[in-house]
Write a protein that binds this DNA or RNA. Structure first.
Length: 679
DNA sequence: TAATGGGGGTTTTTT
DNA sequence: ACCCCCATTA
């Protein structure tokens, strides 16, 4: 009996020690899902399974890491270092790197992130001469989203468009032709987007020979958050397991929140159709939340027309709890102040900032709160929304890394060349054309690129001669020097381009230094680029100023990014109809139900304290001084409200943003903060 | 051909 | 408030 198993309840223990499988564990929020998965990995290792031969598929790499770390703490580092794990996308990436030839991919294939894919979509749309003459065509990001949704759901494009972008459903033909060109272009440039990673992995897994071989590499496969798996991912699993029963899937239909990515809880609920002889174990004892918070969660669940399969029971009373609150606010400003006040109040009661989180439906919902937090110098970190990876200069360096392995990547050339002063789309295009040979292709050999480089230089403005030579030299470097050295060489060649392209070059250059260090562990520069795309570091709240002396910060997060996490105190903001549920999702009953589950997920992150904020009034930014009244979220039904203590809006807040009496106090705070940097 | 400014349309969640 | 497109200017 192992350390972690001693703490398991009977159901958890049964799941952890179950035989080969296939096994399905239905686990509501806070029921010890991670503990059980950890214990099961431990049991498998104890039974003599080699760590490398366990595949742990999780929704984020963070959760894979958490499980591996927990097992390591119990069994020591050596045993678990090599447990294979990660997201479907990152495992797909590794698999395809290893077996690229078998599925017809070039060795140094590049990986496009969402933004790159949208840019390429825009490029081919331009080439096809499809202009938005009647304002009918969706913009590039929407095109990308449509494409992804179509691929991931496996639904006909016409249906996807009718459901999601009805305003441009007439442009079906044009959109389809853009998609066709997009697919062809990715192929000729040696590029994969996120969806391609799954598509190619599926091809490999479904092949009778290769799929058998890939599956045989794993003695056991465990999949977390199975309710958010889509058809592509399910097909991959079926291909990898075939007749092999050694599979564990864990999930909760009540927490299915990725329908927009083609996921469906049906795959969890109907799993016995795909995995023969499936056994199910259900965990419903909640160890996370207070009884009062569970009452809120269960009331929300009871409102779901089809019900959730989990009704949560509290067994271990949680200490230090307070009544869940429903706080009415005059407007968004008032909400920001109210949240900040309550965060500080809890902080003074001993709840560290890191144990509190503010959750919201859409990334931009926290904008006003971020200003308030910065003003009162409360440090915070925001999850979701803009990422480090999406910063322009990071993408610049990653584009160069991709080129170092795959000179055919026109997207990367196009981006890099435009960093030079006096070079825009037109000159960049001519420079790229100068690299092509007869059949219009860019050669794959770096030697050939170097030979043709003088033609490129002729096209560029004369004052970029030196930087372009440096760039070519760095990119076409011999491949056998250590990768980090190569990376640093490229960084130095890029540095003058960054300096000339951005006003605030200094901090950007520092970022790039950090990225170069990330290359120490890999053998290929395109791997670094791909891994950065697949697992971007969470962005930090730079608004809050210099790193605080005390290392404590408040967490701001979209509900999606908060999945799987728990906090002592949860603040759910913008619980107004149109924001939460989002009015974008109200077109279909399924959309509304997904919003309900999202609300359920946010509530069930809380251990001890919960507050839901409803602004009564929204100012319109379009028209000065105009406003409208908001309806509280439809999820705050009578029965849900009966589990909450209502707090009316304080003093109807006639304080305007700029004339707040708090300004005098905060001025000194700001000064103190600035001075604190001096010594 | 690059940079800039005005005007109009859109607006979610993520690997 | 933001992004995209287009026209104008350097």
């Amino acid at each position: 009996m192992f350390a972690s198993q001693r703490e398991l309840n009977p159901r958890q223990h049964e799941a952890a020690t179950f035989g080969n499988g296939p096994l399905r564990v239905i686990a509501g929020p806070g029921t010890g899902k991670t503990t059980t998965l950890t214990a099961r990995v431990e049991v498998l290792l104890e039974r003599g399974v080699t760590p490398e031969r366990i595949l742990l598929l999780t929704f984020t790499r963070r959760s894979a890491r958490e499980i591996v770390n927990r097992v390591r703490a119990i069994r020591g580092a050596d045993q678990v270092r090599r447990v294979s794990g990660g997201t479907f996308h990152s495992v797909a990436h590794h698999t395809l790197r290893r077996h690229h030839a078998a599925v017809g991919l070039p060795e140094g294939f590049g990986v496009l992130d969402r933004g790159d894919a949208a840019d390429l979509m825009d490029l081919v749309r331009g080439e096809l001469g499809i202009v938005s003459r009647e304002r009918r065509l969706p913009k590039k990001a929407t095109l990308g989203a449509l494409y992804s949704r179509t691929v991931n759901t496996g639904m006909p494009l016409a249906d996807v468009m009718r459901e999601n972008t009805p305003w441009c459903a007439e442009s079906f033909e044009e959109v389809a032709s853009v998609f066709t060109a997009f697919v062809a272009r990715k192929r000729s440039l040696g590029l994969l987007d996120f969806d391609d990673l799954l598509l190619y992995w599926r091809v490999a897994a479904q092949d009778d020979v290769l799929g058998e071989e890939l599956g045989a590499a794993y003695d056991h496969i465990l999949v977390d958050e199975f309710q958010d798996v889509n058809l592509l991912q399910l097909d991959v699993l079926i291909g990898l397991r075939r007749m092999d029963p050694r599979l564990t899937i864990v999930g909760d239909d009540a927490q299915a929140i990725y329908g927009f990515r083609g996921a469906s809880a049906r795959f969890l609920l109907d799993a016995e159709r795909y995995f023969h002889g499936l056994t199910t174990i259900t965990l419903d004892v909640n160890y996370r939340s207070s009884a009062a918070i569970l009452a809120v969660a269960n009331a929300i669940a009871a409102d779901a027309p089809e019900g959730f399969s989990s009704v949560l029971r509290e067994v271990v009373p949680v200490a230090g709890t307070s009544q869940p609150l429903l706080i009415h606010c005059a407007d968004e400003r008032d909400q920001s102040e109210s949240v900040t006040d309550r965060v500080l109040e809890l902080y003074e009661q001993g709840v560290a900032l890191q144990k509190q989180a503010v959750l919201f439906r859409a990334a931009h919902h926290s904008a006003d709160l971020e200003i308030e937090l910065a003003r009162r110098r409360i440090p915070f970190v925001k999850y979701g929304g803009l990422r480090y990876l999406e910063a322009a200069h990071v993408k610049d360096l990653l584009a160069a890394f991709r080129l170092a392995d795959n000179p055919r990547d026109e997207m990367a050339w196009f981006r890099l060349l435009q960093l030079m002063p006096g070079v825009g789309p037109a000159k960049a295009r001519r420079a790229i054309n100068a690299l092509r040979d007869m059949d219009g292709k860019i050669p794959l050999s770096h030697g050939e690129i170097r030979r043709r480089w003088s033609r490129v230089v002729d096209v560029l403005p004369s004052d970029t001669r030196e930087m372009s030579r440096d760039l070519a030299e760095a990119l076409c470097e011999k491949e056998f020097e250590p990768v980090v050295v190569h990376a640093e060489r490229i960084r130095r060649a890029i540095a003058p381009l960054i300096t000339s392209s951005y006003d605030d070059a200094a901090p950007r250059l520092e970022d790039l230094g950090a990225l170069v260090l990330a290359c120490a562990e890999t053998t290929r520069l395109s791997d670094v680029a791909a891994e950065q795309a697949l697992e971007p570091p969470a962005s930090t709240g730079d608004l809050a100023g210099p790193p605080m002396i005390d290392e404590d910060w408040l967490v701001l997060s979209t509900v999606h990014s908060a999945k799987g996490l728990e906090f002592d105190a949860i603040h759910v903001i913008h619980a107004a109809d149109g924001n939460f549920p989002s009015d974008m999702s109200l077109g279909s009953p399924e959309g509304l139900e997904e919003e309900r589950r999202l609300f359920y997920v946010s509530i069930t992150r809380a251990r001890r304290n919960l507050a839901i904020y409803v602004p009564l009034r929204y100012h319109h930014h379009r028209v000065r001084d105009d406003h409208s009244w908001a309806q509280p979220s439809r999820f705050l039904s009578e029965s849900v409200r009966s589990t909450l203590v209502e707090v009316p809006a304080a003093g109807t807040s006639e304080r305007s943003p700029s004339s707040s009496s708090a300004v005098a106090i905060d001025g000194s705070e700001v000064v103190a903060g600035q001075l604190s940097k001096l010594w």
